[in-house]
Design a protein around this nucleic acid. Structure first.
Lengths: 189, 189
DNA sequence: ATGATTTTTTGATATAGGTCAAAAATTATT
DNA sequence: AATAATTTTTGACCTATATCAAAAAATCAT
């Protein structure tokens, strides 16, 4: 059963009742994305969250005509555009597929229903945010105190399984360094 | 009733039942802190969260003997050391008072109790994390793409009411720039 | 208040990483 | 496979910010 993959993810944080499994199964929708395909566009409210079964998505925005990558999300993670999704605001971010990707989507109204009816779902949301929280704090530390080279190494260690699947230019903008600089850093090894 | 100040804060996110108000009142403890006093020390697990009624706290760590400020928290906010508090880990952070401060403390076991028995408390926790989340994302953007000067200006706008109450050296380490640089930036205006 | 300590400012110099431009390598399209 | 488009690398030069050192100003303790 393909939903099992999502269930396993939830099980890292909470005990999933059969009732919740049922409701979840009925609400998630399978999607396949081609490389380069958008799942969300700027100037809209982000209304779905995507659980990646296989593949790699990127959230980015445009700055002076350039794409600036904000995060990358791979297997067994949920992606959405956080601020737009949580606060139902129009967005500046785009989400596209770096690779061909298989995902489940969950609409925000369905998430709302689940949060409303299953207290453990609130708990899941709080706890899983804690994980992301810790990542953001590390990223801030990394940006404040480390050289471009160290930041790249940190990036490779955090995105262990996927860093090699992401084009150099996207990594550079994610790290906030010039693409030329990243190219030089890579050349050192 | 002094607890009203905390209730007002909760009311920004959820409707507070009388039962929850009761339980909260019984669990929060009033504390007064002198300037410079520590409320939490590294090498311990952070077991309390503090709601600031008046004053200013700072969370910092030591790097090569230097104090590096991680955040500042003022009136009507909760402070703790996030990673240690959420994951019950030994900590690297210290929390001290920049000014004489009045706070309520809430022990993690009491928070656990409230989360356990009041689903709206889970909701509050999730939603209030959303607010902090948005701040962290902005801070990351600010670190990646803006000059020291712009970062300082952004800092002043975010910490509108409190930036002037924080010593320059602490602000510099928060922004990840040298204290001399910040002094020069300030001199420009 | 007075000296001691801490914090901030100013000056001189060094460097990591940015920018612009062009070549090389890789990937996509017909 | 050949050509076009995109991405990455290399080179030359420049700028923002770091570092080190010392003076000035502010704050603290007796």
């Amino acid at each position: 059963m393909p939903e099992n993959q999502v269930f396993l993810h939830f099980a890292k944080y909470i005990a999933l009742s059969n009732a919740l499994k049922e409701e979840l199964s009925q609400r998630i929708v399978s999607k396949t994305l081609k490389k380069g395909e958008l799942v969300h566009s700027a100037h809209n409210v982000c209304t779905s969250s995507y659980f990646i079964r296989k593949g790699l998505l990127r959230i980015y925005f445009l700055k002076e005509g350039q794409e600036i990558s904000e995060f990358f999300c791979a297997e067994n993670e949920w992606v959405n555009s956080p601020k737009s999704f949580m606060q139902r605001q129009l967005d500046i971010y785009w989400i596209d597929a770096i690779e061909e990707t298989e995902a489940f989507s969950l609409h925000i109204s369905d998430l709302g229903y689940l949060l409303e009816h299953f207290p453990e779902m609130e708990r899941y949301a709080r706890l899983s945010m804690g994980t992301i929280f810790a990542h953001l704090l590390e990223r801030i530390s990394s940006l404040r105190f480390t050289s471009a080279k160290e930041r790249y190494e940190h990036f490779c260690s955090v995105y262990q399984t996927i860093h090699a699947r992401i084009p150099l230019g996207m990594v550079a903008s994610y790290l906030g360094i010039a693409q030329e600089t990243l190219s030089r850093i890579r050349a050192l090894k």
